[in-house]
């Protein structure tokens, strides 16, 4: 966040018009101390909870650590071993594929759902209630439901295909490497498309109604209206949704854990699963922490784009001059 780093130091010099609109005249030293007192406990707790463990994890990644005994420094050894490991490289690739598929499905479906629910029709209120339900379901339970939903013995999805004559025998989707990857992506996207849809819908509802109407009067087709009116309007939200989905995709753990535990073979072993195995099953804390640092850096970099973006949109009314 290079653009913000400079702001930190200069915080006290630049007046922030929109924020404390009438505050400056009445803010004496006592009030400033009051503000500081309010902010300290939470900020300190977060500093302790985020800063400490983050640094410690980075330190671990340069050490040879098990849960008992001494922890000698080994330099870049853990990282070198990771880069030379087929397992890690495979896992990294799979994570990319997983995140890519997840982002694509969640975002597209979310937008389609939002466009549908933004239309006026009988049953719309009910449909909006439906939209929120997948989001309310915890990730782990989403994984459990989908694991059994597509199960080869009792699963309703197989039943559905069977009923319509599309298959003659139930298919064990999770037994096949690419099948497992696809199904775990779809299961996670089931929940995330709901969140994306809610966010898109909130944005669509802020479109002034006369805007599409004017476009229609001017002879715009449905597609043109979507491309020239709707899409530009939701573009900022699209950005937010995309970044959120990328992060959720990279960090997915629960759904995989419930559905495949990383299998069959290593076909759904995302970095998060690899990290968990290395640390808590093999007690390779050093290697596991190196994976955590890589995963953390990827998510963190993408996340900073997100924060930067939110921060900008806030500063539109928060600061007069950038």
């Amino acid at each position: 966040m290079p653009s913000h780093a400079s702001l930190d130091g200069a915080a006290s010099e630049t007046p922030k018009p929109g924020f404390v609109r009438s505050g400056h005249s009445k803010l004496g030293a006592a009030d400033r101390r009051f503000g500081l007192l309010l902010a300290i406990p939470a900020t300190f707790i977060v500093l302790l909870l985020v800063g400490g463990p983050s640094l410690q994890t980075i330190v671990y990644s340069f050490q040879k650590v098990s849960f008992k005994g001494p922890t000698p420094f080994v330099g870049l050894d853990n990282y070198v071993r990771l880069l030379n490991s087929d397992e890690f490289r495979h896992s990294f690739r799979i994570t990319m594929v997983y995140a890519g598929g997840f982002v694509l499905i969640s975002t597209t479906l979310g937008l389609v759902f939002a466009l549908l629910l933004n239309e006026r029709f009988w049953g719309n209120g009910f449909a909006r209630t439906l939209l929120i339900i997948p989001w309310a379901a915890p990730w782990l339970m989403v994984g459990i439901m989908w694991k059994w939903f597509i199960d080869a013995d009792v699963g309703m999805f197989n039943g559905l295909l069977f009923q319509f004559g599309l298959i003659h025998d139930y298919v064990p989707f999770l037994a096949n490497p690419s099948g497992a990857l696809i199904v775990t992506i779809v299961a996670a996207a089931w929940r995330q498309s709901s969140l994306s849809g809610l966010l898109f819908l909130a944005a669509l509802q802020t479109i002034p109604p006369d805007l599409p109407e004017a476009a229609t009067v001017d002879g715009a087709s449905t597609w043109q209206r979507f491309r020239l009116v709707t899409l530009p309007w939701v573009r900022p939200v699209l950005m937010v949704v995309l970044v959120t989905n990328v992060i959720f995709g990279f960090l997915q753990f629960d759904v995989i854990y419930a559905m495949t535990q990383g299998g069959p073979g290593n076909s759904t072993t995302l970095l998060s699963i690899l990290l968990y195995r290395q640390i808590f099953q093999f007690s390779n804390v050093g290697i596991g922490s190196a994976i955590a640092v890589v995963l953390g850096l990827v998510a963190f970099t993408v996340g900073l784009v997100f924060v930067n973006f939110l921060y900008r949109s806030e500063s539109v009314y928060g600061r007069a001059v950038e």
Binding site: V50, G52, P53, S54, Q56, T57, Y60, I247, L251, F253, S272, L275, I279, V285, G288, S289, A292, V293, L295, G296, A299, F300, G303, L304, F306, V307
Partner: peptide, 11 residues
């Protein structure tokens, strides 16, 4: 807010 909790659980 952006630091992934999953990555810093060991400490």
């Amino acid at each position: 807010r952006v630091v992934p909790a999953i990555a810093i659980i060991t400490p």
